[in-house]
Amino acid sequence: MSVNEPLSIGPRPVQQPDLEALVQSVARGDTDAFGLLYDAVAASVLGVARAVLRDVAQSEEVAQEVLVEVWRTAPRYRPDRGTALNWVLTLAHRRAIDRVRSVEAAAARDHKAALLDQLPEYDEVSEQVENRLEREQVRRCLRTLTELQRQSVTLAYYRGLTYREVAVQLSLPLGTVKTRLRDGLIRLRDCLGVSA
């Protein structure tokens, strides 16, 4: 060391690799270039992911996904659109935002499912009570029909006979049975309070 050379204190500055050249080499499948690129950008990628996600574990996952994506999509890098570092960090930011949206969507689905779980179960007891009350009302209204109307309605609607079979069963003309059924159903409708 000569007297005229400046004295250097501390470590020598590390020369930054040419990221554009590394990305182009990675695009050709150069794994050594990918290792150098990884070392050069991994901390920045993780920083972007942490800034967006604020969760260490998810940030690390996103950083890993981004670096894999850099390996796979390096041929798509276009130097005329920006620096290699900006391209990588844009991938990181987008992936982190996608993760936030995914987590929010999952939380919304979980919240909706939790609300559905809180809905009361089918109330079997009240349903049975309602059915019983309705049956009682129908029985009460059936008692208001004439004997012929009640027999016709019972045979046709509770036993499932056709009008012709009801006529044979009651030994009546088919027209009479149809009239009695129509009149009986009208009276039932009015008794039950059903609108036409």
Rank of each mutant, 00 (worst) to 15 (best):
L46A: 11
S2T: 04
A108D: 01
V88C: 13
V194H: 03
E20M: 07
R28K: 15
E20Q: 09
E136C: 15
T162F: 04
V23Y: 04
S44H: 11
G82C: 01
C191Y: 06
S25L: 15
R164H: 11
I186G: 08
A21K: 08
V41A: 08
R143T: 14
R150Y: 07
A49D: 02
L7D: 10
A156D: 10
V168G: 12
R135V: 04
L89W: 13
E124K: 00
E104L: 06
L85P: 04
L161R: 15
E121K: 01
V166G: 10
V62D: 00
A33R: 01
V66A: 04
V194R: 01
R28P: 13
A51S: 13
A108T: 06
A84G: 08
Q151C: 02
V66I: 09
A33I: 01
W71L: 05
K112T: 14
S59G: 15
P75A: 01
L7G: 06
R150P: 02
S25N: 15
G193F: 15
Q16I: 00
D32G: 08
R150A: 13
V62G: 00
T176D: 00
R76P: 00
L19D: 12
G193I: 14
Q128R: 07
H111E: 03
E5T: 13
G160I: 13
V52A: 05
Q128V: 08
Q24N: 14
Q16R: 03
R78C: 10
A167G: 09
S2E: 04
M1F: 03
T31L: 14
V103R: 10
A114S: 07
T83Q: 09
V177D: 03
R143C: 13
P17Y: 00
L91T: 07
H111F: 13
R187D: 14
A42G: 04
Q137E: 01
D30I: 09
T162G: 15
V41R: 02
W87T: 15
Y77W: 07
T73P: 09
T83G: 14
A107S: 06
R72D: 13
A27E: 06
L192R: 06
P13Q: 07
L161G: 12
P13D: 05
V68G: 05
P79A: 14
R150H: 10
D98A: 07
V45S: 06
T31E: 14
R95T: 08
L89G: 12
A21L: 06
Q149K: 08
L142Q: 04
F34S: 06
A114R: 11
L67E: 01
A33K: 01
R109G: 02
A113V: 01
A92V: 15
A63M: 02
T144R: 10
R99W: 09
